[in-house]
Amino acid sequence: MTIAPVQRTATTAWTDARLILALEEVVETELNRHLKVAKEWMPHEFVPWSQGRDFDGVLGGEAWSIEQSKVTPLGRISLVVNLLTEDNLPSYHHEIATMFGREGAWGAWVHRWTAEEGRHGIAIRDYLLATRAVDPVELERARMAHMSEGFESDNAHSMLQSVAYVAFQELATRIAHRNTGHHSGDPLCDQLLAKIANDENLHMVFYRNLLKAALELAPDQAMRAIADVVINFRMPGHGMPGFERSAAQIAIGGIYNLRIHHDDVLQPVLRHLKVMEVTGLGPVGQHAQDELGAFLAGLDTQATRFDERQAALLARRAAAAAARA
């Protein structure tokens, strides 16, 4: 993708306001492309309502207990993390609306993205409650605690950092949903999360293509933003109660870990953008590119060590299970 009317300019010339204005046409093009390929789907069609029944409380139904659900323990943990992440949509909307604005093509995209993301939380919560996959009381308490804290990105301090962050984060979210479905133990859950993951992939493509345009327009600033985001990346749900423990279990279980993050999130986006092949950079961009290359090499080494520890742990668990059998 190229932006013919706009030429590369000195790094200091590209303020956030100028970049937003210069990329407006790209946003409009990507929004129109997105609207053509996005398929309408109805969250309620993916929820097995026939499995639902009243809970205890006001309606005097049946109290929740863990044996009522067919979802695996790992699937349950990841579903809750995924749902609580989706629940913070008001904060995410505020972040991108404040950064990108609510007018023109940017505003149209912000609102469309928010509308599509909104159905993810609706569908997952409906599924969890209809199938009694989680304790509804604990889920609601966790939602209240997480949303009461809100969300403020620690990766995005500029327009380019915001675009770079969501390009990687949307792909990470897609993979987290897809792998959660695979590990859920319920084909209906897998089917629902596959649909949600498809939305996330389309969102990733939008932001990735926008980042590509920014990299061509302001290569030094964009390279610096990409390096900063990759090096400091954290998932948006990191502030939720018990996140570190849940993330560790999700990592060991193979839903999302360092190897997946390196191989299936960072590398595909960076390869598509040809980030390590960009030439003609100034001192700022060149330093960022070198720093990024060194970080990726180190992350790959860390991921290999994690793979070894994970394999050893799973082997010990399998041996212990065999001994008990």
Rank of each mutant, 00 (worst) to 15 (best):
V81N: 07
V58Y: 04
G60K: 05
H262P: 11
G254W: 02
V81E: 07
A10Q: 14
T11F: 12
F151A: 03
R245Y: 02
A172V: 12
K274S: 14
Q310C: 10
H44C: 01
L273M: 11
Q7S: 15
L192R: 10
N32K: 11
M235H: 09
H183K: 15
A320P: 12
L193E: 04
A303Q: 09
G52I: 01
P236K: 00
F206W: 05
A213K: 03
V71N: 05
H272R: 14
V134M: 02
T12E: 15
F100V: 07
R316S: 14
N232I: 01
R119Y: 05
I231Q: 12
L21Q: 13
E95Y: 10
N198W: 07
R317T: 00
E277P: 00
L139F: 05
V110A: 07
L202V: 00
S78M: 06
Q249K: 10
G293A: 10
L129R: 05
L23G: 05
I66C: 06
K195D: 00
L83H: 07
V284A: 08
V265T: 11
F243T: 00
L270R: 07
I20F: 03
A17Y: 06
G118H: 12
A108W: 12
M147V: 10
A320Y: 09
V71G: 06
P73T: 15
H93Y: 15
L273E: 09
E244N: 10
G282K: 04
S65L: 08
P5Y: 03
E62N: 04
M240E: 07
R208F: 02
E24G: 04
I231L: 15
C189W: 05
L129P: 05
A251P: 01
A218F: 09
E138L: 08
L35H: 03
V37G: 02
V47C: 05
V265S: 07
P73V: 15
L35V: 14
A108G: 11
G181H: 05
W49P: 09
G282I: 03
L79F: 00
K274P: 10
L192Y: 06
D228F: 14
N198A: 10
E140K: 13
I3Y: 06
R305H: 14
G285W: 04
E152D: 07
E67W: 15
S148E: 13
G254Y: 00
A321W: 11
V37C: 02
A164T: 04
F295L: 11
F233Y: 15
E24D: 15
Q51F: 02
V58M: 06
S162V: 09
L211Y: 13
I255S: 04
H238M: 05
F168T: 02
